[in-house]
Amino acid sequence: MSIQRLHTEKRYSEIVIHNGTVYLAGQLADDYAGDIRQQTRETLANIDRLLAEAGSDKSKILGLTIFLRDMADYAAMNEEWDAWVAEGAAPARACVEARLYDPRVRVEMTLTAAL
């Protein structure tokens, strides 16, 4: 079975597709100056775009991990998530507080989805 890698850089690929499964690297907002709501919306929009490129969509997400800079943002992030997640297709999910690579980043998400 072949492995397809898209948007590959030296250290990572944005998308890896193997055996009917899509893996996305950690996704961030485009503008780190925004609040948690804006950063969450932008992160989810990037996920939508990459899943579409891979031939999948949010209704096929199997598992997702959310990294928050501060758990105080949990409720606001969840409001954006709840408005976005496909009805009846909530994935297995974890959310943890983490020190992210840039102090302006409030949220990062990584996921696995079916094709």
Rank of each mutant, 00 (worst) to 15 (best):
F67C: 09
I66V: 14
S59A: 09
G20F: 03
A83N: 09
E97P: 03
D73P: 06
S2F: 10
S2P: 08
R5Q: 14
I47G: 00
W84Q: 02
R99F: 10
A54Y: 08
G34M: 02
G55R: 12
R93F: 07
W81E: 00
G26E: 14
E14Q: 15
E53R: 11
D70H: 14
A25P: 04
A98M: 12
T21E: 06
L50A: 05
E53Y: 11
A29G: 04
D31S: 08
R11M: 12
Y12L: 13
E9P: 12
V107R: 02
E87T: 11
R49F: 09
M109T: 12
R106T: 04
T40I: 01
A45G: 06
T21F: 04
T40N: 00
L6G: 08
V105N: 05
R106W: 01
V107I: 10
A98G: 10
Y23C: 07
L50H: 07
D30W: 14
R11T: 13
D70Y: 05
G20N: 13
G20E: 07
R106M: 02
V85Y: 02
P91T: 03
T110W: 00
E79W: 05
M77K: 07
E80T: 11
T40M: 01
L50S: 04
E42D: 07
L28T: 15
L68K: 08
V105T: 12
Q27V: 13
F67G: 06
V105K: 11
T112F: 02
A52V: 07
V85E: 00
R69G: 06
G34C: 02
A114G: 12
G63A: 09
Y101Q: 11
G88R: 03
A113Y: 00
L115M: 13
C95W: 11
D82L: 09
S13G: 12
S59H: 05
D73F: 14
M109F: 06
K10E: 14
I17K: 13
A45F: 04
M1S: 15
R69H: 13
L50C: 05
G88A: 02
P91W: 02
G26C: 15
L62N: 09
I47V: 06
S59I: 02
G55W: 09
P103F: 06
Q39F: 00
